[in-house]
Design a protein around this nucleic acid. Structure first.
Length: 305
DNA sequence: AGCTCTTCCTGAAAGC
DNA sequence: TGCTTTCAGGAAGAGC
């Protein structure tokens, strides 16, 4: 499932293909994961892509202001002005199974492809999403700060000071807090588990109960894990592929995620899986000691890789 | 405030 | 063997 390193990998790939391109037209299949499907066809054609960035797990495709000369379609009289002029941002969240990639029209369309953005170089940007847990929305430049303000700082760039401030403020379990995009943006289940293992912290620990040393360890572990994962192109568990259709290889480095029943690489104890904050959480019961109040029933099922 | 449960969706895997 | 059920999970919303 795409988390920060996977999204970063996709963004880097798209960055070599999209900036400078103009969107000619938009074709959509199913649209139940798009905030305002009609807005895409209305505002994107004629726009030039100027940048591709990452906001947490969102891909941000920045579009230049319309320049009347190249504008192919007349816009209706009562367009909201903030969407009719100025920059626009196409935000894409890949959810669980989303993929965004540039393809030649010649290439066969894989099933569950619901979005086609035709580009002026003859290629098309395709959005594919089997489960449609993804999300696509269009935000005017003026609305971007508000959108960003609903998310915490990026997990890759957050300072040790701000990280510890986030943890101290709240009493949630550390695993829940790492996954909460309002506290910290970009973390997902895999990298939360991997970071906690590396920092030797049990996922069900209460954030406020972590020692300063543990917080520092977790901050460092998180950054190391994310950086290493980006270096390897992310993790390909189910079907993650980068913008060029290649899998990542960080799944080879997983120490706990998907390793229930196997031995801890550090101490040899058997990796366990429990549910914390509604998410399956993998940990080493010896390296990551259970907090005082034992957690809920461990659900026993082998998880694949 | 933060937890659990539910919903969305599909395909893989388990169950019978 | 083949049909049916269960399950996974990011995020949001409801209810407690």
């Amino acid at each position: 499932m795409p988390e920060l390193p996977e999204v970063e990998t996709v963004v880097r790939g798209l960055r070599s293909a999209l900036p400078g391109r103009r969107i000619l037209s938009v074709r959509l299949g199913k649209t139940d994961f798009i905030d305002d499907p009609a807005a895409l066809g209305k505002h994107l054609p004629g726009r030039r892509i100027v940048a591709v960035e990452r906001i947490g797990k969102f891909i941000r495709v920045e579009l230049a202001p319309e320049n009347g000369a190249a504008h192919p379609a007349p816009s209706s009289a009562h367009e909201p002005t903030e969407a009719g002029d100025g920059r626009l941002h196409l935000l894409v969240h890949l959810g669980m199974t989303g993929r965004l990639a540039v393809r030649s029209p010649q290439e066969p369309v894989v099933p569950h492809t619901h979005g086609f953005f035709d580009l002026d170089d003859g290629n098309e940007l395709r959005y594919t999403d089997i489960r449609r847990f993804g999300r696509i929305l269009l935000v005017p430049a003026a609305g971007l700060p508000e959108f960003q303000s609903r998310l915490g700082e990026d997990a890759l760039f957050v300072s040790a000071r701000e990280f510890s401030r986030q943890l101290a403020r709240r009493r949630a379990r550390i695993k829940a807090l790492l996954l909460d995009q309002k506290s910290l943006r970009g973390m997902g289940n895999i990298y939360a588990d991997e970071s906690l293992w590396r920092a030797r912290i049990h996922p069900a620990r209460l954030a406020a109960n972590l020692s300063a040393e543990e917080v520092a360890r977790l901050h460092q572990a998180m950054r190391q894990v994310l950086r290493a994962a980006i270096r390897l192109g992310g993790s390909s568990i189910s079907d993650f592929l980068d913008a060029e259709g290649k899998p990542g290889s960080y799944q080879m480095r997983h120490r706990v995620y998907g390793r229930e029943g196997e031995k801890c690489f550090r101490c040899g104890a058997v990796i366990k899986r429990i549910i914390v904050a509604g998410r399956s959480s993998h940990f080493c019961p010896r390296c990551q000691p259970t907090p005082r109040l034992p957690r809920k029933r461990a659900r026993t099922r082998q998880s694949k890789k």
